[in-house]
């Protein structure tokens, strides 16, 4: 069951041509991939490496120069398969003159959904992406982050089996990024397949089961995230704050086991975790300035 392939790409090549049919760019070169049901797959790579091209080929927006694509067992140009697909484009290409409700209603109508279900689902999604307060405003007044959120809602309107996300976290603040990541993980829990591409590595690392790294249109690395990131001959120990003596003792113990100590110091939190913590604190204790756990704080206490 888990091994049922949702996306099969074999030998996919895409060459962009100019008006006269002359070759301009080779955007993808013999890419072969298989994405299985229920996994979150990340396509990584620097700008111009062919991530978005792959996605657009999968969606039938572009036509392959060579090779084969099967999405949900159908060719990419087949329209019916779209009933089960949700797509969040790179920049949330939505109609800016519609408001959130109208947007979801419009896209919902394109699916075979009863009117009642459509309305319920739209209301549910608006709440879920946190746009309840702005559902009557036209999208042209939305901030970038809000646009991403309504974009995601739009992609999920049909409760799709396969969700394709193009740079889902770009343009979002860390809070939004966190929400987005949470929602992606939720999708996985619901048994959906997610294909996302991004160049924000941290985000990919947090949510993806498997990743592929593209460079210059070619597949460079592919595999499970843990497998790829596991440093085989290092061990990391994390403890509460220790005295200097204790550290010395530990060094001795390591030396006794023929090991070698690399670095021992106080770990710095990532800015991201600090930011998230700050926001959480602010929500818990509104009106107060948040004082992080620093040396000075300790000293003043």
């Amino acid at each position: 069951m888990d091994n049922e392939p949702v996306i099969q790409i074999s030998n996919l090549t895409k060459i962009y041509r100019d008006f006269w049919g002359r070759k301009k760019v080779r955007a993808l070169n013999s890419l072969s991939l298989e994405i299985k049901k229920g996994e979150i797959f990340g396509l990584l790579g620097p700008n111009g490496s062919g991530k978005t091209t792959t996605l657009k080929l999968l969606l039938g927006l572009l036509f392959p120069s060579e090779g084969d694509i099967k999405v949900l067992g159908q060719p990419a140009s087949n329209v019916e398969k779209n009933e089960r697909i949700g797509y969040l484009p790179e920049e949330s290409y939505l109609y800016r003159f519609l408001n959130a409700e109208e947007t979801l209603d419009f896209y919902g109508r394109l699916f075979k959904m009863p009117a009642k279900e459509r309305r319920e689902r739209a209301a549910e999604l608006i709440e879920k992406v946190g746009l309840g307060h702005a559902k009557r405003r036209q999208l042209k007044e939305y901030s970038k982050g809000m646009t991403r959120r309504i974009g995601l809602a739009q992609a999920l309107i049909n409760n799709p089996d396969l969700v394709m996300l193009d740079e889902p976290t770009s343009g979002l603040d860390p809070l939004g990024t966190d929400d987005m990541k949470r929602m992606i993980l939720e999708l996985k829990e619901q048994g959906k397949t997610v294909l996302m591409c991004s160049h924000l590595l941290a985000d990919v690392q947090d949510v993806c089961d498997r990743i592929a790294i593209l460079y210059g249109g070619e597949l460079k690395v592919m595999g499970r995230v843990e497998d790829l990131l596991k440093e085989q001959d290092e061990t990391q120990i994390m403890t509460s704050r220790l005295s200097d003596e204790a550290i010395k003792e530990i060094e001795q113990v390591v030396a006794k086991h023929n090991g070698k100590v690399g670095t021992i110091d106080h770990p710095t939190a990532t800015l991201e975790s600090l930011f998230l913590k700050t926001v959480q604190e602010s929500k818990d204790r509104p009106g107060q300035r948040f004082v992080p756990d620093t040396e000075e704080k300790k000293a003043s206490e």
Binding site: L59, G60, L61, V79, E80, K81, N82, E83, I85, Y87, P89, E91, Y93, L94, Y95, Y107, L110, F111, K112, Q154, N158
Partner: peptide, 14 residues
């Protein structure tokens, strides 16, 4: 040009 059509053609619309 604005690629808004992308979100439409990726729905089951001819």
């Amino acid at each position: 040009k604005k690629r808004t059509i992308h979100t439409v053609v990726t729905k089951p619309a001819y």
